[in-house]
Every structure is written in C-alpha cells, then in structure tokens.
C-alpha cells in the first residue's frame, strides 16, 4: 500500500507511508463462507512465498473477552455496540495489521469496518457517526464482497449452524421470532452492503456459486495486486518471490 490512506481523521501519531504490504478485506454477511475462503487464500499465498497475516472481527487480545461479556448481557445500546467493535478493530489495526503491513505481509481481514458501518446504520438510520468513528481505519487495497441473497442465506444458515441472537439482530426486535428477525435483519444488512459496494468500489463475488468457483474468482481479483507489487521499484526485491501462475 504505497499510498496508504486513512478513511477520515487518521492516527496522527502514525505515518502510513511506509506500509509495504497489501491489505485485503473479505466482507459479506454471516454464513457466506468467509473464513473457509480466507484459509484457502492464505495457503495459496504462502505456497507462493508471501507472508500472510489473517485478522478477524472481535479477535483482539484487548476486546474479545469484553465483547463476549457485553453480548451475554444483551444490554448494548447502539453507541456502545459500535464503539466496542471500533476498539477491537483499533487494537488489531495498531498491534497486528500495521506492523505486518510495515514488514511487507499480505493481510487478509475477515470482515472490515464495512460490517460495523452496516450494523450501525441498520440500528440508527444514520451513516455519519460510525464513519467518523472509524476514520482511523486504513483504506484497504482491495475489498472482496461475498454477496448472497437472503433466501439462499436463510437455507444455508439453517442447514449449518443455525440462527443466533445477534446474527438475527434480535436486539432490534424486527420480527416476532428468530426466523423473521434473521431474515429482516440480514436483508437490511445486504441492502446496505450493496450500497457500500458501489460507493467504496468493492469487488462483488456471487457467493451462491460453488466454493471452487468463488475461490478462483477471489484469486483472480487478488492476483493483480501481487504483480503490481512486484513491479514497484521501491520494494526490496528480497521481500517478494515470484508468484506461481494462478490455478
């Protein structure tokens, strides 16, 4: 990310210009297979010799326990809800993502700030505040959005892990039961993701396709980033190895 940028008011105590790696975000609602695809991408990149760091939503050392506790209480207001996620995100950004990018790693982010923006918008009807809060986030080099329609999603989630309280947005009381609420909540999220896909230029990938097809498409979107990287003269040549042709 030679011209790394912050979304809004950035980290004033940090210079983003020396970040050599690439930041790739995989977005999409629950149940579209993000984590499986990220595992496969990591394998693919590592075989080619790239250093890879994966980072996931709510996985920070500082906040993962706190967020679990907050969710158990089910007492989150809209602001605390978004701020807890923002704190988790900031902790991972400053302690994992930025150091990795500085050392030339490829960072695969399982969800990025767009998840938080969509969730906050569905709860508040207002886009500005959450965008301001996440102003310190780095603009990724690439955002791949695994898009699915709510009908397919419902079937998939029921077949696999089932619906849970938060993925159903039960705090919003959108429906009478888990099923109704899940459907309404996820439809609203998808609608907002679709809008952001245009605004922020996501690469949209149809998540109803077979896992192999999705993986191929993801790789074809990522590949150009790797070749650009190889051509940039300011990068140390020992850092990167020639990628194998994508399968």
């Amino acid at each position: 990310m030679v011209d790394a940028q912050f979304f809004g008011d950035g980290l004033t105590y940090l210079n983003p210009s020396d970040l050599k790696g690439k930041l790739i975000a995989i977005e999409g609602t629950d149940g579209v297979g993000r984590s499986t695809h990220i595992e496969m991408l990591q394998e693919w990149l590592e075989v080619q010799g790239y250093g890879v760091l994966t980072t996931g939503w709510t996985r920070s050392n500082l906040m993962s326990k706190t967020i679990e506790m907050a969710k158990e209480g089910n007492i989150l207001d809209r602001w605390s809800f978004s701020l807890l996620y923002a704190t988790d995100f900031a902790d991972r950004l400053e302690h994992e993502v930025i150091p990795a990018l500085r050392s030339g790693f490829i960072v695969l982010a399982d969800r990025y700030i767009y998840t938080a923006l969509a969730r906050d918008f569905v709860r508040s009807g207002n886009r500005q505040w959450a965008r301001d809060v996440f102003g310190f986030a780095l603009v990724p080099d690439l955002v791949c959005y695994l898009r699915i329609d709510v009908e397919t999603l419902v079937l998939r989630v029921i077949e696999t892990k089932g619906m849970n309280f938060w993925e159903s947005g039960m705090d919003l009381r959108l429906g009478n039961d888990l099923y109704d609420s899940f459907k309404k909540y996820q439809s609203l999220l998808i609608e907002e993701f679709d809008k952001m896909a245009e605004e922020f230029h996501f690469e949209v990938i149809d998540a109803r396709k077979s896992p192999d097809e999705i993986q191929d498409e993801l790789r074809s979107k990522i590949q150009p980033l790797l070749t650009t990287n190889l051509r940039s003269p300011e990068l140390p040549s020992d850092r990167l190895i020639h990628p194998a042709p994508s399968t």
């Binding site: 980290l11 105590y13 050392n61 500082l62 007492i75 207001d77 602001w79 605390s80 701020l83 807890l84 923002a86 704190t87 900031a90 902790d91 400053e94 302690h95 809060v133 310190f136």
Partner: peptide, 28 residues
Amino acid sequence: KRGKKNKSLTPTTFSLLHATDFASRLYH
C-alpha cells in the same frame, strides 16, 4: 485495567474505551 496492565493501550484504544464507557453510562 487489563489493557493498562499489559501496557497494550494505544492513544486510540484508550480513547475508544473511554467513549464506550461514556456511551454505556449515557444510555443506562
């Protein structure tokens, strides 16, 4: 407390944690 103990708080996480506390107290 945990963040202070590990000395892992950054200016941004420090600020966000206090904002979270404030939001939660404002609401409740």
